[in-house]
């Protein structure tokens, strides 16, 4: 009887869909209480799902039938980023050149640094391609990893690590690198550590946060173009 109930729950794609939405909702609630970069709703959701699958011995493929449905929205979500870029057009217009130069140099340096370090450590090409877009906002990073033949989930893992690191270190790095300009601080945070870094940038100041948000969109687009030209 219990087996049949369990089977009925897992059988439908709704299992993966519901588990994703439910754990993300729990993640949102927890992250609102504990305002720490490590307790972001995304990470909580992933860890809870992994725990549920492990505890109940549910194979990944069972989850994926629903998970793939949620993942199907990768493209629409990336498309919608255009709206947030469009909304920021006034700020972009007034600081266009510094933003462009910062995100252009930062994005190229990021990709080159990953490639050089990958060669130096002798990791596989598959792993290297997974790491190339890891500074960029998640939807664009996953799209780039796909087109390169990297492993999506490794990209996302490296990207979360990078983002959390940027979030925690951002105020320290601004001092360490003697960054005086607030525009430079925002652009650096957004280019190096995407949206997770941007949440710290917003705490450092509304202007820094806005710059960081713009920079992450710019960096995503520039990285996509740069990677398609040189790989």
């Amino acid at each position: 009887m219990i087996d049949r109930i369990a089977e009925a729950i897992i059988e439908t794609p709704l299992f993966g869909v519901t588990l994703t939405i439910l754990t993300y909702w729990i993640g949102l609630r927890i992250s609102k209480k504990l305002r720490l970069a490590i307790f972001n709703p995304y990470l909580i959701s992933v860890l809870l799902i992994v725990a549920v699958l492990a505890v109940f011995g549910i194979p990944y493929s069972e989850y994926a039938r629903g998970g793939d449905f949620i993942g199907m929205f990768l493209t629409p979500v990336t498309t919608i980023l255009a709206v947030s870029i469009y909304r920021q057009r006034e700020i972009v217009k007034s600081h266009f050149l510094p933003i462009l130069m910062g995100t252009l140099v930062g994005s190229i340096v990021s990709v080159v640094a990953v490639v050089v370090l990958s060669e130096a450590f002798g990791i596989t090409d598959e792993l290297k391609y997974s790491l190339v877009p890891k500074s960029v906002t998640t939807p664009i990073a996953v799209a780039i990893a796909d087109s390169l033949g990297g492993i999506r989930s490794l990209t996302v893992t490296a990207l979360i690590f990078t983002g959390v690191m940027g979030n925690i270190l951002a105020p320290l790095l601004v001092k360490l690198f003697r960054v005086k300009s607030r525009i430079a601080s925002g652009v650096a945070i957004g280019t190096a550590s995407h949206v997770i870094g941007t949440s710290k940038a917003l705490e450092m100041g509304e202007d820094i946060g806005a710059m960081s948000g713009i920079a992450l969109s710019f960096a995503g687009i520039i990285t996509a173009i740069f990677v398609s030209l040189f790989f």
Binding site: L97, P98, I99, M101, G102, T103, L104, V105, G106, S107, V109, S110, A113, V114, L117, S118, F121, I123, L127, L131, K134, S135, L154, T157, A158, F161, T162, M165, G166, L173, V174, F177, V179, K180, S181, I183, A184, S185, V187, A188, I189, T191, A192, S193, A215
Partner: peptide, 26 residues
Amino acid sequence: FHIILISAISMLITFFAAAKAVEITE
């Protein structure tokens, strides 16, 4: 270990490069 090391080092270099590129442009 390689994933963390590569992510961490490249993140620091990227931050520095982006910040300095903005400041030089300004």
